[in-house]
């Protein structure tokens, strides 16, 4: 089949790619699931890690110039502070990092030196309890928003883990969820939830009143298939990681479709370093067409992405840094593609 255009016309432009596959500690990502941006310029990347490399679960750190700045991890396991299936991260005003763990139904908190500070959560449906927390976002008042895919709700906490309330239940009506995943906030602290298995984004007031819904099921422009992440810039533009369609979509503040990104990764600085010391791979790579025409039975975005390296594959999360550059975190490609909306 002829693969689709890498990017549709629109205001969002590609900048560069960061990251590299690795099988060990140190530079590189292992199934990155989320990122966050410290006020000192550090970019924090959560490596979720697959089963074979679970013990390497960690937060890695780099800067905009792609210098590797180290990593920290409490280790893989069930002990206090440890992670098993971490999904998302967020920073509070004090620059402490909050990590959701969907397997252990809890939130762990660390300072940026990697010191464990506290944790909360246990499986259950009562306030303060959680089931499979996935997305997390913290507003300017340090209200911690946690998406619970298992309880189909959003729960708000203080930074000490005191429950402030919940909203949502299983279903497909406005305000209901089906295995929600990511969460984003706008400048007015409105809450956007990637309602994963309902193929839509739902917008709520800071207190959880339903405001609007974006997207219907499908693969056309403006349609969504299992959206996993959402973020909103200062002009109200909404970026959605359309996970099932292996793409990112841009909507305006009214929820109107603006642009589709399919991915256009290039070699990161770390990837260039790898190629420079592996000339046989580098030489044959230069002969290759990395956006090939594929046989017709590769007929899903997922299969096309598995064969087309520049395309998004497993775009789990979208986040904006302080300069409103868009970071698209790709689990299956172990990298982050970075874009920015052109001011109009």
């Amino acid at each position: 089949m002829t693969t689709t255009a890498a990017v549709s016309a629109g205001p969002v432009e590609y900048i560069k790619t960061v990251g590299l596959t690795t099988n060990q500690s140190g530079r590189g990502f292992i199934n990155p699931y989320d990122c966050a941006f410290a006020s000192d310029g550090r970019i924090l990347v959560l490596s979720h890690c697959d089963t074979a490399r679970a013990s390497l679960v960690r937060v890695g750190m780099l800067n905009w110039d792609e210098d590797y700045l180290g990593e920290f991890s409490p280790g893989y396991g069930r002990s206090t502070g440890q992670w098993m299936l971490p999904v998302a991260i967020a920073l509070d005003r004090q620059q402490n990092l909050y990590v959701t763990d969907e397997h252990q139904h809890r939130i762990t908190v660390f300072d940026l030196a990697g010191n464990f500070l506290r944790q909360w959560g246990e499986p259950g449906t009562e306030p303060g309890q959680m089931r499979a927390p996935s997305g997390i976002a913290i507003n300017d008042d340090d209200v911690v928003h946690v998406v619970e895919q298992g309880n189909n709700r959003v729960q708000q906490f203080t930074t000490d883990g005191e429950s402030l309330g919940t909203w949502g239940q299983a279903g497909s009506a406005p305000g209901e969820f089906n295995m929600p995943w990511g969460i984003g906030l706008d400048t007015a602290a409105n809450v956007y939830v990637a309602d994963w298995r309902n193929d839509r984004i739902q917008k709520f007031t800071p207190s959880g009143e339903h405001l609007s819904t974006i997207g219907t099921s499908g693969s056309g422009p403006g349609q969504l298939s299992r959206p996993s992440g959402v973020c909103v810039d200062s002009d109200g533009y909404i970026y959605v990681s359309d996970w099932g369609n292996e793409r990112v979509q841009l909507f305006n503040a009214n929820g109107e479709f603006i642009q589709t990104l399919r991915g256009q990764a290039t070699l990161s600085k770390w990837a260039q370093d790898f190629m420079s010391v592996n000339p046989d791979e580098s030489n044959t790579r230069q002969m290759a067409n990395l956006v090939p025409n594929l046989p017709p039975h590769y007929d899903t975005p997922y299969l096309v992405s598995s064969q087309t390296e520049p395309y998004f594959w497993g775009p789990v999360s979208v986040r904006l840094d302080a300069d409103e550059r868009l970071f698209v975190v790709e689990s299956n490609r172990h990298r982050i593609q970075i874009y920015q909306r052109r001011q109009q």
């Binding site: 596959t21 790898f274 592996n278 046989p295 590769y298 064969q307 990298r335």
Partner: peptide, 12 residues
């Protein structure tokens, strides 16, 4: 090789 960005699946 899994570098730089994991496996690239094959096609005929």
């Amino acid at each position: 090789s899994i570098w730089p960005y994991s496996r690239i699946a094959w096609h005929f």
